[in-house]
Simulated scan of single mutants.
Amino acid sequence: MTQPPQTQAVQPTTSYAKGDIVLFRDVEKFWLGKPGHTLVGRVERSWRHADTGKVLYDLVELSGNRHRAGIDPDYMRLLPPADAMHDIDTAPLSEPDTAAMTPAAVAWLRQHLAQNAAELPDQR
């Protein structure tokens, strides 16, 4: 009887640059099933572990400005700006009710209108 050929899953390697915004997991909390294990952080630096040679990252947790050292990139995912700005890009601008827009879209519109208020004609 012949065995089917074995395939090995290859995990793509991702490297992160200083300033990248990432979603990361507190590994211990995650595997113990504790709440608050998934966080957002900003990459501060990368370094290679002296014993294992694995590249690890130091992050600043954005929700508390707390430094987190030695984060394993297997538990990190990049948060692309396009995803973060999706709600603004897809806001229903023709909608007369601003409650139908997400808060981020409304905030962007208010800021944009405030910056250009000097260019608008006087209201009558």
Rank of each mutant, 00 (worst) to 15 (best):
D74K: 15
R48F: 04
N65S: 09
R66C: 08
G36D: 01
T98L: 13
Q3T: 06
D97A: 11
L109T: 02
A69K: 15
G19Y: 00
D26T: 06
E44K: 11
Q123M: 12
R25F: 10
M1V: 07
A99E: 04
A9Q: 11
Q11D: 06
F24K: 07
A17R: 13
Y57Q: 03
T2H: 11
V106G: 04
H67T: 14
V55Y: 01
Q3F: 13
D87L: 14
A99S: 13
A9P: 12
E28P: 11
L120A: 15
T14W: 14
D89A: 15
L113Y: 06
R25Q: 06
A104V: 03
D89L: 14
A50K: 02
E119D: 10
Q123C: 10
Q11H: 14
K34W: 12
R110T: 02
G41M: 09
D89I: 13
A99K: 12
Q115K: 15
V10W: 10
R42Q: 10
P121I: 02
A117L: 15
Q111T: 06
I88D: 01
L120M: 09
D97R: 15
E61A: 12
D87G: 14
S15P: 12
I21G: 09
L93I: 13
P121M: 04
E61M: 12
R110K: 07
D20Q: 07
Q123S: 14
L32C: 06
W47A: 00
L109Q: 01
R68N: 01
M1P: 13
Q11S: 08
M85C: 11
R68E: 02
V27Q: 04
A17P: 13
Q3M: 12
E28G: 10
K18F: 06
E28D: 10
L62G: 05
W108G: 00
P5G: 10
T90H: 05
L32S: 07
D26G: 09
V22E: 00
L109C: 08
V10D: 07
D89K: 13
L79N: 10
R48D: 00
Q6F: 11
S63M: 13
E95G: 13
W31V: 11
R45P: 12
R66N: 08
Y75T: 07
V22A: 04
K18E: 10
S94P: 00
M1R: 13
S15V: 07
M101A: 15
N116G: 14
T98I: 12
L32E: 09
R42Y: 00
L113D: 03
V40D: 04
F30D: 05
V27M: 05
M85Y: 03
R77M: 14
D97I: 14
A114Q: 05
A104D: 00
L62H: 03
H67C: 08
P81G: 04
S15A: 06
A118Q: 07
A100Q: 08
A50P: 15
K29T: 02
A82S: 07
G33K: 04
R110V: 06
G36Q: 01
A104K: 04
A104L: 05
A69Q: 12
P81S: 02
A104C: 01
A84V: 04
D20V: 09
H49G: 06
V43I: 11
L113K: 11
G64I: 11
I71W: 01
R45W: 05
L79Y: 03
V106Y: 00
R68Y: 03
